[in-house]
Design a protein around this nucleic acid. Structure first.
Lengths: 259, 259
DNA sequence: ACTACAACGAGAGCAGTGCTCTCTGATAGT
DNA sequence: ACTATCAGAGAGCACTGCTCTCGTTGTAGT
């Protein structure tokens, strides 16, 4: 809903994926999903080509500049053909957002994974650094997923699950910390027990109580605030060395965990 | 540069204000700026009417939905006429951004002002609460000024000065704190002396050293991160009571100042 | 093997956008 | 009173998202 088409409902649906693929499984061979079929292959190829070009455009001109017609042109397609694959520009955007969350989460996981499991401090530092690095490397994707939401666009439930992936990496470190018998400093208890919602708790083990989850979310928000300010240019003429500044904040965060 | 016009340079200029007003002072009466002149009056009236409608539209459909043509229609003007007052949509947006920063800063100042000067704790709490309240009351303006920047849009120097206004309220509290002989806890010293840049230091007295300014910026970023997450919907299914959560974070911030 | 159906792409077209250019009155300063 | 300036009108360009129709073609069921 970026440049806002004529009028429409205003509240974006933007939910449905590629309709054909999703509506298909009723027919064909239920033996297995054995036979891909040349048509479906073509469909998948086209879909991912659209996404590839969309991502390229996103990186170049940002979310607002993304144009279905331009994508069609680059594929030697007529604009209406693209609508066979994505029902609207919004749907494409939704898909890009979802992918963005995944990539972001994957990047953070990848950075944190190789660190020795019981070196919680190093794990946190690695994850935090990856959080910033990815944002700086993919500013437009970052803006898409953590910047201002498209007006009238209410994130479908899919996105809110995907959104927490990067944050969960931090949470798991806290979890392991707790499992290792670590005692969090008393200061963190300003966060009430009921602040973190059940949904998030289900994705974590029972080791952490809501207060500690809330502490984790607070720290996460803190880091994301710094990253957003930096990538959105708010630190211009304010902070000379954002990298060092960020590392200092990370160090401060560690003390909040008692590390 | 939202829906990106044809091609143009890509890098937004977006600097110039209402050109007539700025280019005028060579002629007329340099005795004083005494005589407003009926024509100039009309110009100012029209300009502010445009801004009024633009703000209304912004609040309703967000930055991306802002349409010069629609504004013109609502004023019973033809679209090209609006260009007599703002050279481009970008210029209008720039103006709205500037105004947004001002309003935001004013709101925070207004909330902090009535608090007894030597109750630094209450002053901080009032300012922090205003920070969040304004954002929640004006989500689209907030998104405009603190959300993802318009792609290709490089903030003119004017904006970066205006941007710090709300943050400065917090800084002044630290300043007063320091002036009152308050000793900041040792932990804050993870922030290196050189992090805060000269520009910001000039707008504050010499009482605060760069390390404490950096601490202030960090806390400010933290709060803004929380506010952004909340207004941009990132806390959905994550935090049950964002208000209480925010207040807890504010309390934690106070301890960082030794309050 | 044939047929009915669904998918796909093309093309035209609608309503909207930002922005430019030219022309015509009104108006303000000389 | 004259003239330069300015505001607005109007037409038009290039672009957007999206819809609809219409042949073609692959696919699946009989």
């Amino acid at each position: 809903m970026y440049p806002e088409p004529p009028a429409k409902t205003g509240a974006a649906h933007a939910a449905s994926e590629t309709p054909g693929t999703a509506a298909a499984p009723a027919s064909a061979a239920p033996t297995a999903d054995a036979a891909p079929g040349p048509r479906q292959l073509h469909r998948e190829a086209t879909t991912s080509e659209i996404l590839r070009l969309a991502r390229a455009q996103l990186a170049e001109v940002g979310p607002a500049g993304l144009s279905l017609r331009k994508i069609a042109r680059e594929m030697d397609l007529v604009s209406s053909a693209v609508y066979r694959y994505f029902p609207s520009r919004d749907a494409l955007l939704t898909r890009l957002i979802l992918d963005g969350y995944s990539e972001y989460g994957a990047a953070v996981e990848l950075a944190e994974a190789p660190v020795s499991r019981d070196d919680h401090r190093a794990r946190f530092e690695a994850a935090a650094a990856a959080l910033r690095d990815w944002a700086l490397a993919n500013p437009n994707s970052y803006a898409l997923i953590y910047g201002s939401p498209v007006p009238g666009y209410h994130a479908p439930q899919d996105t809110i699950a995907a959104a927490s992936r990067a944050g969960l990496v931090l949470m798991r470190i806290l979890e392991d910390l707790r499992a290792a018998g670590h005692a969090f400093p008393a200061g963190g208890e300003v966060f009430a027990q009921g602040d973190a919602v059940a949904h998030l708790r289900d994705r974590l083990g029972p080791t952490l109580d809501a207060g500690h989850i809330a502490l984790g979310i607070d720290v996460w928000s803190h880091l994301m605030g710094l990253i957003s300010f930096e990538t959105f240019g708010q630190f211009t003429n304010m902070i000379t060395d954002p990298g060092r500044f960020y590392r200092a904040a990370v160090a401060e965060s560690l003390t909040r965990f008692g590390l």
